[in-house]
Every structure is written in C-alpha cells, then in structure tokens.
C-alpha cells in the first residue's frame, strides 16, 4: 500500500517529512519528489540515509586518468624511442599536460557513470510512463500491508 501526500507549500512538506522520518519509518520506504534542487530537504534525508557515494566515482576516475595519462605517454615513447628536439624521452613537464587533461576527462566521465548507476537513470519505466507533479512537493510512503 502506498500513502501519498501532496503539498503546494514547501514548509508544510518539510514539516511532514521530518515528522515521518522521525516516526521511525524505514527511510528507504519514504520517497520525496520535489520540483527543484533543495539542500534543506537533502540535509533532512541525510540524517537517515548515507551521503551520496558519487565522490568515489569522481576520485577513481580522476586517478585512473592521471595514471592512464602518464602510462600512455611514457609507455609509448619507450615502445619506439625516438628523440625529437633533443629533449629527454620521458619529458615529464610535457606529459603533465596530457595527464592533466586525461584526469579531467576520466573524472567527468566517471562522475557521469556514477550518477547513472546511483540514481538509476535512464529510468525506462518512467520514459514510457512519465510521472509529473508540476510544482508540487510529494511525499510517498510505502507501508507494509497489514
């Protein structure tokens, strides 16, 4: 059974949300839908649920980009050692530029992947049957059938 509360007023919604979460309902059974990013609502939720793990994706992506960038440049020059412009084969300052760009690229791609995995988008069910609440704040609670 699904209980649903709809609010036009953000303050009323927040009050109800706090009440429901404090009453001991399992937080994963509570779903909130709101029309714009709202840090206050997130803060309330995050008292009960863990914070987003997206940062680990960004970190791992960035690190793999740095390592990958240096690996790509260093291993390829060693694979076919050819001196150009009298510079050392492994020219770290030049390779930093490549590694830096790859850090950013991999970091951004990994963050996007993290978002896709954590938020469960694209949500195929909702693509076929979209749910729109306009500017309303909605609170849905799944209660176990008695």
């Amino acid at each position: 059974m699904k209980e649903e509360f709809r609010f036009e007023d953000r303050e009323e919604f927040i009050k109800k949300l706090e009440e429901v979460l404090a009453s001991g309902v399992a937080p994963e059974k509570v779903n909130a839908v709101y029309p714009h990013p709202d840090h206050h609502i997130e803060e309330i939720f995050e008292k009960y649920v863990p914070k987003s793990k997206l940062k680990f994706f960004t970190l791992l992506g960035g690190l793999s980009g740095t390592i990958g960038g240096f690996a790509l440049t260093i291993l390829t020059v060693l694979h076919w050692p050819m001196i150009t412009g009298g510079k050392p084969l492994i020219s770290i300052p030049a390779f930093i530029v490549i590694a830096f760009e790859m850090t950013i690229l991999f970091g951004a791609l990994a963050s996007l992947t993290g978002f896709v995995l954590l938020s469960r988008v694209p949500n195929f069910k909702r693509i076929l049957y979209p749910e729109d609440y306009g500017n309303e704040f909605v609170l849905q609670i799944e209660r176990e059938d008695p």
């Binding site: 839908v33 997130e42 988008v121």
Partner: peptide, 17 residues
C-alpha cells in the same frame, strides 16, 4: 530527460554530480 521524476534519490546524486 531520461525519465526524470525529481525524487530525492535523483536529486541527491544529481547535485553531487
């Protein structure tokens, strides 16, 4: 819109991203 609804789970990770 990838079936975006605006649930807490979506917004939470979205803001981080």
């Amino acid at each position: 819109s990838l079936g975006w609804t605006g649930t807490f789970k979506e917004w939470q990770h979205y803001n981080q991203l």
